[in-house]
Structure formats: C-alpha cells, structure tokens
Amino acid sequence: MKQIKHTSLFYTIVAVAIILFYLLDSTEILTLKIGTAHPILLIPLLVSVSMTAREWVGLVFGCFTGILLDITAADTYCFNLVAFALIGCVCGLLCSYFVNDNIYSALVLSVCSSLAYFTVKWLVFFVFDGNADALQFFVNHSLLSAIYTSLFIVPFYYAIHFISKKTNYIS
C-alpha cells in the first residue's frame, strides 16, 4: 500500500516548533539558565532538522530561525541570519555526503555548531569590538553555553526523527 507523504505537515510542525521554542526563550517562560550558561535551543533543533531534511530545507529553516533571533538580538546586525543559514546548510550537506544519520553524528554536529556559533559571536562582538575581559567572558559564558546547548541534541534528534517517520517524510 502506498504511503502518503505529508511533507507540508512535517515542515509546518518544524516551523511551529522553531517559533514555539523561540517564544519560550525570548519571553523567559522557559528559563534553562545555569549560572552564566544559557542554551540556545534552536541550534540543536536546527541541526536535527537539517540532518533529517538535508541541505535545502536546512538552509531555509536556518534563515527563518536566524531572522527570528535577529528580532530580539542586541546589536548583532544580521549575524544570526548568516550563522543559522550556514549551520542549516552545512549540517545538511555533511549529512548528505559525508556522515551517517545517527545520534553520534548528531552529537558531533551539535557540539561543532554550538562551538562555532558562540566562538564566532564572541570574536566578532567582543574581541574585535575591543572589550576588556573578553577572554574571561569566553570561558565563563560562551564556552559553557556552547557545551550546554549541544546537550539538547539528544531529545531533539529523536523527536524530529519520530515526527518524520509519522509524517512519512523522506528527504
């Protein structure tokens, strides 16, 4: 019996999930901050989506996520737009051509994406801006936040795969 693909449903669910987690974080309804470490849940969520849906969908949802974050971001110009577009596209490409789609790859991609995001953000907006105590900020905030963020890949990876199976989404 031919299975019906619910591609639009999958995309809708992902879009709603991105908006939901963005709202929960920006309105501080969901506060996961531990000390100075604050996770950005949208990074592991985007990595999971990109691994499932590959590069094009990753690029589109990356742009969407980046624009959302730019709404409330401080003076970061369109940094989030560029960063998340790259994360979505690169993770999708790596999963298409180089790595297998499993939890271990997801962990590696999540850690690398988080570290890259926080490090580049730190470099551009703290180091190049001439802030004193930039190194202290990197160790106390950026590095801890990157590690904390990447831990959330586990639930997101399985959740996205569950949704893709239920909607018969095939990339």
Partner: peptide, 24 residues
C-alpha cells in the same frame, strides 16, 4: 533601523511575544 526581514517577521511575532510575556 531594524532589518526589513526582522521587521516584517517581527510584526507577526511581537503580539505572540506580548501574550507570552503576559503569561510568564
């Protein structure tokens, strides 16, 4: 000025943020 894409998307998102903030 806030970037055009953020401004357009923000027009839709801001009411939800206001509601979410009120709930919070």
């Amino acid at each position: 000025i806030i970037s055009p894409q953020s401004s357009i998307l923000g027009s839709f998102i801001v009411p939800f943020q206001s509601a979410g903030r009120a709930v919070g």
